[in-house]
C-alpha cells in the first residue's frame, strides 16, 4: 500500500515523541541523581560523581542483593518453564477438548490477580498456625510448626512458588495452544514408528516449538524482574536479607531506612544498564 498520505507521520510521530520524552527524561535523570548525593531529608546536594558506585561495590548487602536477584531470576524462570511445558503437554495428551477449555480458563486466573493479592493469598496460606497450605503438614506431624516464609533456606522458594503459580499455569495454556497449532503429520509418523508418548514430545513436538518457547522464556525473564510486589508483601526482603532483591534493597535504601535517593538511584542505574544490555543482546539473538 504505497499511497501518498500523511497518515504514518501524524500517527507515529506524536506517540513516539511522547514515549521518548516519558522514558528518556526519567532514565537520564536517574543517571544525574546517581552522580549526586541527594537525600530525602534535605533539599541540598552536591555532585559526588562516581563515589556512589564505588560504595556499592564495597557494600556487602548490595552484593547479596545481586546474588539474590540472580537466584530469583533462575529459580522462577526455570520452574515456570518446567511447569508450563509439563502441564501443557499433559493437557495436550490426556484432556478432552472440553476439559482443555475449562483448564485454560482456570489456569489464566492466577496471572490476572494483582501481585499484591496473590502475595496476600499465599501469605495467609503459608501462615504457620492458621494457613491452609501448611495445614496438611500440621495434620501429618500432629501439630508441628512449619513456617516457610521465615526460614532463610525456604523463604525465597516460598515466594518464588507464588510467581510460578501465576506464570507457570498461564504459560501452560500458551504451550497447549502452541502444540495445537502443530501439523499432525510428524506426530503420526513418530507414532507409526512406535515412539512412546514422551519420546514424541521430547524429540518431535518440543524441538518444533523451539523458537516460540525461547520467546516465551524471554518474556518470563523480563517479567521476573518485577518481583518487588511479591517480596514486599510477603517477606519485606527478610528473614534477614535472604529475599532482598535489588529493587527491594534500592527501595529500602531510598525510602524506608535512610532516604538515600542517590544511592538507590545508582543501584537502579546499574540494574538498568545490566538488563538493557542483556535483553538487547538476547532479543537480537532470538530474532536472528
Amino acid at each position: 500500500m504505497a499511497r501518498r498520505t500523511s497518515l504514518p507521520v501524524t500517527f507515529v510521530v506524536p506517540t513516539i515523541a511522547i514515549l521518548l520524552v516519558l522514558s528518556m527524561v526519567p532514565t537520564l535523570y536517574a543517571i544525574v541523581i546517581a552522580l549526586q548525593n541527594r537525600e530525602l531529608s534535605t533539599p541540598d546536594y552536591s555532585w559526588v560523581w562516581l563515589s556512589n558506585f564505588v560504595d556499592l561495590f564495597l557494600d556487602r548487602r548490595f552484593l547479596n542483593a545481586v546474588w539474590v536477584s540472580v537466584k530469583w531470576e533462575i529459580v522462577t524462570v526455570v520452574a515456570t518453564m518446567v511447569v508450563a511445558i509439563g502441564h501443557g503437554v499433559l493437557m495436550f495428551e490426556v484432556a478432552s477438548p472440553r476439559l482443555r477449555n475449562v483448564y485454560c480458563l482456570l489456569f489464566i486466573i492466577p496471572v490476572l490477580l494483582p501481585r499484591v493479592s496473590a502475595a496476600f493469598v499465599w501469605k495467609f496460606a503459608y501462615h504457620p498456625l492458621y494457613g491452609i497450605a501448611t495445614y496438611p503438614y500440621r495434620l501429618l506431624t500432629g501439630g508441628l510448626i512449619f513456617d516457610p516464609l521465615s526460614k532463610p533456606g525456604t523463604a525465597l522458594f516460598a515466594v518464588a512458588s507464588v510467581d510460578v503459580w501465576q506464570w507457570g499455569l498461564f504459560f501452560a495454556v500458551i504451550v497447549l495452544k502452541l502444540l495445537e497449532t502443530l501439523p499432525p503429520q510428524p506426530i503420526e509418523a513418530a507414532r507409526l514408528d512406535h515412539a512412546k508418548r514422551w519420546q514424541i514430545h521430547a524429540y518431535v513436538t518440543l524441538p518444533m516449538l523451539k523458537a516460540p518457547l525461547i520467546s516465551l522464556m524471554f518474556v518470563k525473564m523480563i517479567e521476573s524482574l518485577r518481583s518487588f510486589d511479591l517480596i514486599y508483601v510477603m517477606t519485606r526482603g527478610g528473614p534477614g536479607v535472604a529475599t532482598e532483591t535489588l529493587d527491594m534493597y534500592a527501595f529500602s535504601q531510598g525510602f524506608i531506612e535512610s532516604g538515600k535517593v542517590s544511592y538507590a538511584s545508582a543501584m537502579a542505574v546499574l540494574m538498568m544498564i545490566a538488563t538493557v544490555i542483556t535483553f538487547t543482546m538476547l532479543w537480537k539473538r532470538v530474532q536472528a
Binding site: 513516539i16 532514565t27 535523570y29 529493587d247 535517593v261 537502579a268 538498568m272 538488563t275 535483553f279 538487547t280
Partner: peptide, 22 residues
C-alpha cells in the same frame, strides 16, 4: 517495535526514583 518493547526492560525502580524527584 524494538524501542516499544525495550521500555518493558526498564526496571520500575529505575523509572520511579527519578520521577519521584521530578
Amino acid at each position: 517495535q524494538f524501542f516499544v518493547l525495550s521500555l518493558r526492560f526498564l526496571p520500575p525502580v529505575a523509572v520511579a526514583i527519578p520521577l519521584m524527584v521530578i
